[in-house]
């Protein structure tokens, strides 16, 4: 369920005409969700890089990984971790494939969780299109104010069974005119969380051949992102650490 974090793709940069008044505060929940959905409508493909930090309180460690996500309508997804280890999940609209890079080569896994992963990837596809409707069966969705953001969308599991694994997902949306999600926090417990920050989102990029089925497309996928010659705004101090004081 941590892939809920990929919702970030569904709320990327938006060509918004938000007013100055709206920029000063949070949008009403339904309005923010509507704008997110509408903002995605003009785009057929998306790609973004991300940095993921997993904090495990019992070990007092923070594991960091870097990756990228590609999407093409109606629902193809590539979710790839590129460092410090490499792994890949793809969904081409029909088939889910999981890979790991081990001992110098990609290995296709016969993953017993492939069916569940496929469900999650399809869910991601809906989110990428700004579609939260089906999630209302599993989650309570609300929007709360967050400093320096247009708002924070919170998904809280309805069932106790799901709450055992995930307490809440928090999606932080930048203020207008961007309406861009730059951070997603997945809280497994009161102390354990996964914090994802997104950067270099590309809208309507040309998708390399094999992106949604082949690990060999990895280099081509990395290649579509421009070199980072200056710090991403998402990595600035005002957007890091306790950015916006995530609501408790």
């Amino acid at each position: 369920m941590v892939l809920l974090s990929l919702l970030a793709l569904g709320t990327g940069r938006a060509a918004s005409g938000a007013s100055a008044k709206e920029q000063a505060g949070s949008l009403p929940p339904s309005e923010l969700l509507r704008r997110l959905r509408e903002s995605r409508a003009p785009y057929h493909t998306f790609a973004t890089r991300f940095v993921q930090r997993k904090h495990l309180a019992i070990l007092d460690v923070e594991l960091q990984s870097e990756g990228m996500i590609f999407f093409r309508r109606p629902g193809s997804v590539r979710y790839e971790i590129v460092a410090p280890v490499r792994s890949l999940m793809t969904y081409d609209g029909k088939k889910v494939q999981c890979y790991t890079f081990t001992e110098g080569a990609w290995k296709l896994l016969n993953n017993p969780a492939a069916t569940a992963i496929g469900q999650v990837l399809r869910q991601i596809g809906r989110w990428i299109q700004g579609d939260f409707d089906r999630d209302r069966k599993m989650f309570d969705i609300d929007v709360v104010p967050a400093d320096n953001y247009a708002g924070c969308i919170r998904l809280t599991p309805r069932s106790e069974a799901l709450t055992k694994y995930i307490r809440r997902v928090e999606i932080y949306v930048e203020k207008a005119p961007e309406y861009r999600v730059t951070r997603v926090i997945i809280r497994e417990s009161e102390v354990d969380l996964t914090d994802m920050r997104f950067r270099q989102e590309l809208r309507n990029p040309s998708i390399p051949e094999g992106t949604f089925s082949a690990p060999e497309a990895s280099n081509a996928c990395v290649g579509i992102f421009p070199p980072v010659d200056r710090p991403d705004p998402n990595e600035s101090p005002t957007r890091s650490g306790a950015a916006g004081r995530p609501p408790s």
Partner: peptide, 9 residues
């Protein structure tokens, strides 16, 4: 701890 590729424990 063991962690999945998508970050869950």
């Amino acid at each position: 701890a063991g962690i999945t590729d998508i970050g869950s424990t």
